[in-house]
């Protein structure tokens, strides 16, 4: 397996609780960039970065267009924009149509990150009540990346990890504690 170079995470219903079990566990020395898409009700001011800044040891920011990716930083997609990672390791936002009713879309983030990081990507699908992320996770797998889903039995809303797992039978299913431990080990 290649050395991991980046982490992408997607979540919907129940996201805050699930992410709170993962992101604050990352040590200040964590070297990879972490990109996160969460579906939120259509409101235009996001407080995600603020919420997690207070809880995390890593810097947390809302992604800006054309910003160069910095390791050891947690980036949230801004509400109402897709977040993509360019192959020159910079961030891109787009206001394209929602994909599967979602903007930001987990699929869009995962697909572009798979293209950029290939086998060095770790992709994680957490709790949620819709199937966004399943296609994206499959692309990550096709590019040789590591596929992880939250154990659906444990997820607040099991549909999203279940759909991703069905699309990617080779994905590992882990409880939140297991996902945090895996990230600590990279």
């Amino acid at each position: 397996m290649s050395t991991p170079a980046a982490v992408v995470i997607g979540a919907s219903a129940g996201a805050l609780e699930a992410l709170s079990a993962i992101l604050p566990a990352l040590p200040a020395s964590f070297a990879l960039p972490v990109f996160v898409v969460i579906h939120l009700p259509h409101n235009r001011k996001s407080i995600l970065a603020e919420i997690f800044s207070a809880k995390c040891r890593l810097p947390v920011r809302e992604a800006e267009d054309k910003e160069p990716v910095v390791g050891g930083t947690i980036y949230f997609a801004p509400p109402d924009y897709h977040l993509l990672v360019e192959t020159n390791y910079s961030l891109a936002l787009s206001s394209d149509e929602p994909v599967r009713y979602s903007r930001p879309s987990i699929d869009v983030l995962f697909e572009s990150a798979a293209d950029t990081y290939g086998p060095s990507l770790i992709a994680i699908v957490l709790t949620g009540a819709n199937p966004d992320g399943a296609d994206g996770l499959r692309k990550v797998g096709e590019a040789g990346g590591t596929m992880i889903v939250q154990n659906p039995a444990e997820a607040l809303a099991p549909e999203m990890p279940r759909a991703a797992w069905a699309a990617c039978p080779a994905a590992r299913s882990l409880p939140l504690a297991g996902i945090a431990a895996l990230l600590l080990g990279v």
Binding site: H82, L84, V85, E86, T87, A92, S94, D96, V108, E111, S112, D115, T116
Partner: peptide, 9 residues
Amino acid sequence: YAMASIKRR
């Protein structure tokens, strides 16, 4: 153009 979105489209 920003390649990641062009590719998608």
